[in-house]
Design a protein around this nucleic acid. Structure first.
Lengths: 116, 116
DNA sequence: GAATATTACTTTGACAGATGAAGTAATATG
DNA sequence: CATATTACTTCATCTGTCAAAGTAATATTC
């Protein structure tokens, strides 16, 4: 499993990560969970409760819509679909991440030059 | 000021950011605060309460030590010095950040290939 | 010299996201 | 029949951030 990522380094990215999965097509909780584990190369294990918290949040803000699958056999599945608004949020969050990444690089590794 | 970084994108990095400043020499709260604002190119404004919370945390875990400056005039200043343990923590946190950054890039921008 | 701004440090309470834990329920496997 | 796996949900707790308020000194401006 390798080392795991600390909670705080992931915090705030869950919604974006879920939206990124849904960009590629409708999916349901358990499948999304597994896709994310796989996407991370098994380095990050999203917790179930975290995922469902994210669904609530995303649905409330209108980024995703849900509908029950019509499985005749097997457990019922609640599918999620990304909305137009969700796509816009995703793009915005991605841009924010790239922006923040640069600043964090400066803050974490950058030296301090005295400018006076 | 440009756009500002969301709290959650910074969360968990404050300690590392403070340690990075102290790597370059002892300093005190207000000065550290200003150095961080400058380091970010004025893109990120660390909040005072957040900084002092970080000091408590860092001192408790032995990453920094503090001592009062001997200013004869001007307000009293509490200086912070990074310890050996603090340096090790810094290096570890920096490595964690670079590790997490790669994974987050995959999770946020990566596509999903079906491997079956 | 009075008012205001700036430097400097501290505490308290509230908030939000992540998560452990527990629960429900169906199907699949051995 | 017992166990594992799939699948979804809720609740309580923890932690880092931060707004707000407070204390107190010096510097600046009117």
């Amino acid at each position: 499993m390798g080392k795991n990522i600390s909670t705080d380094l992931i915090r705030g990215h869950t919604d974006t990560i879920v939206l990124n999965v849904l960009r590629h097509g409708d999916s349901y909780g358990y499948e999304i969970y597994k896709k994310i584990v796989r996407l991370s190369g098994n380095q990050y294990q999203l917790k179930e409760a975290t995922l469902y918290t994210a669904f609530r949040r995303l649905e409330k803000e209108g980024s995703v819509e849900s509908y029950w699958g019509d499985e005749t056999q097997g457990g019922r599945r609640k599918y999620y679909r990304i909305t137009e608004a969700g796509l816009r949020h995703y793009e915005q969050n991605k841009a924010d991440w790239n922006f923040a990444k640069d600043i964090l690089d400066k803050l974490i590794e950058g030296g301090i030059e005295n400018e006076e």
